[in-house]
Amino acid sequence: MKPVLETRDLQMIYHVGKVDVPALRGVNISVGAGEYVAIMGPSGCGKSTLLHVIGGMLQPTTGRVEIDGEDLTTMTDAQRTDLRRRKIGFVFQRFNLFPTLSAEGNLKLAERIYSNSKNGGDAARRHEVLKLLKLENKMKHKPLELSGGEQQRVAIARAIVNRPAILLADEPTGNLDSENSTIVLEMLRGLNKEFGQTIVMITHNPEAAALADRIIEMRDGLVVS
C-alpha cells in the first residue's frame, strides 16, 4: 500500500527558557492510502505535537515527514501552508467552526481557501458531503444553533469537502457526549470505508481507537507499539 504519510526519525524539541523539552524523540510511522489509524497515549506523550508536525503547523527539529510524496521538512512556512491547503483536512476537539457563518458558509470558506478565492466551490460536492454527514437540513444553521455532535459533523464536512489526501483528527470526540461520540466515530468510519478517506486520529478513548484499522501507541515522545 502506497504511504500517504511517512515520518522518519522525527524529533521535536521545545526550547522553554534555557531548558530543552523533547516532545518527539524519533518517531517513525507510516500510514497507507485509505488507512484509518488511531494514535493513543497518555497526556504529554507527544500525540498533539506529532499531529501538528504532520499537519505542517510545526517545523520538526530533525527528521522527515512526507505527505503524499512531498517532504514537509524541506519546505518553507508558505509551502507547508500550501500543502496543508491542498492535501490535509483537520478536525479539532473544539470543532473550530466560524461562529458567524452557517454550516454551508463554513464549507464554502474552506472551498475558497482551497481554490485561492478563484471560484465559489463545488455546490454538488458540498451537498454530497453534508448529506453524507446527515446535515442536509442544517446547511443554513449557524454553529450556535447546532448540537455539539452536529457541529463536529460540520467540522468533518469542512475538512473533507476539498478531498484531502489525509484527514487529521485531534480528539474529535473529546467534547462530545457518548451518543454524539458514537455518531461522529461511525461517520469517520463510514468516510474511511465508503470513500477510502485516509484518517489519522488522536484519541484517549479506547472505544474510538478500536474502530480504527490500526492503533499506534505513544509514550514519552516515542512510538511504543
Binding site: M57, T81, D82, L83, R85, I88, N96, L97, I113
Partner: peptide, 8 residues
C-alpha cells in the same frame, strides 16, 4: 482556524 485550513 483560517491558517489551519491552509489560508495563505
Amino acid at each position: 482556524i483560517l491558517k489551519s485550513l491552509g489560508a495563505s
